[in-house]
Write a protein that binds this DNA or RNA. Sequence first.
DNA 1: AAAGCGGGGTG
DNA 2: CACCCAGCTTT
Length: 373
Amino acid sequence: MTEDITSEYIKDFQYHISSWYEKNTRSLPWREIQNPYHTYISEIMLQQTQVNTVIPYFHRFINRFPDIHSLAKSPIEDVLTLWSGLGYYKRARQLKQSAEVISNQYDGIIPDNYLKLIKLPGIGKYTAAAILSIAYNLKYPVVDGNVIRVITRIFQIEDPIHLSNTQKYITSILNLLIPDNNPGQFNQALMELGSLICTPKNNQSKCLPCPVKSLCKANTHNLIHKLPNKIPQRQREKISQIIFILTNHSKILIQKRSEGKLLSTMWEFPYHELDNNADHNKVYSNISEALFNTQINPKYISSIKHTITYRDITCYIYQLEAQQENAITIESLFKQRNIHFQWISPHEITQFPHSSMIKKILTKIDLNNLSIF
DNA sequence: AAAGCGGGGTG
DNA sequence: CACCCAGCTTT
């Protein structure tokens, strides 16, 4: 099938893509200056995260860690704190690990070599190709979700896209199409096309402004809605939990998650997972007694919903104003369980690594009226 | 409310 | 290759 791709076809394809992109290039913070470090940081942040979400984080990150060496020297807690709310915190840990390697072994210069890049934690095929093409103008095609969608539609590739053979096939087509001149621009153009025009849910009308619609087999054969061929998604699990906002003298108790689990070492509020659809009002008193060996005027605040990967979480937020003796009981319980904890002022949460679920919970608490003591 | 989307790592 | 990562957008 790749033999259909003649040199005229390639020229035609490249011309349409590049002239479309020239008219549609967004000015983004990481495009302002040519700096491989900026490309690297932005590509890691942009994994599973939208451009508009990334922009403020990118500015703060570059400001706080202006180069590889400063990132390599900084404590991981600082990196995670800055990453708080971006999600997928392993990205931040791996970024920091890779910065150490680049700082120590490569003089702080991000390698312009595929095999060296791919060895760094957090850099896979996609990110390696993105850095090489965008930062170093080398001819490596990127194969992300957007590009896969665009290519399977244009060439009517019906094989399931999760198979490695299908991805290899897509890569081989891209290797024919990618130009010697400005391969990075070509890659960004295909991704931009996928995110603006060749979107997942697509009725044919969206194809009207597409620069390569005349070359697109799925468009010609009315198969846009069937491609790409994806395997069904995993069923989502419903989870309910009670969140304890324990307050004492205008301070809130936060605890640190243990290492190696989900959200490793991130800070959170004490919580208790509920059995499937248990009534949080009924189980609350038992739980608070079991956990804190005391009943402290519980006040139901509200609930929030939070979705992550394959879990739907409902949090029932309770506030408990602890008197001094209760606080001591609570502390001894936490020490007994070997849980790191700290009483903090609500605004100090910004100094601790925490997830966006914690941010969401905080919006439900009246921070100005925490404690009457 | 539900479904959809998705790079990299692990085993 | 299957499964997981405490997110976010579109339908």
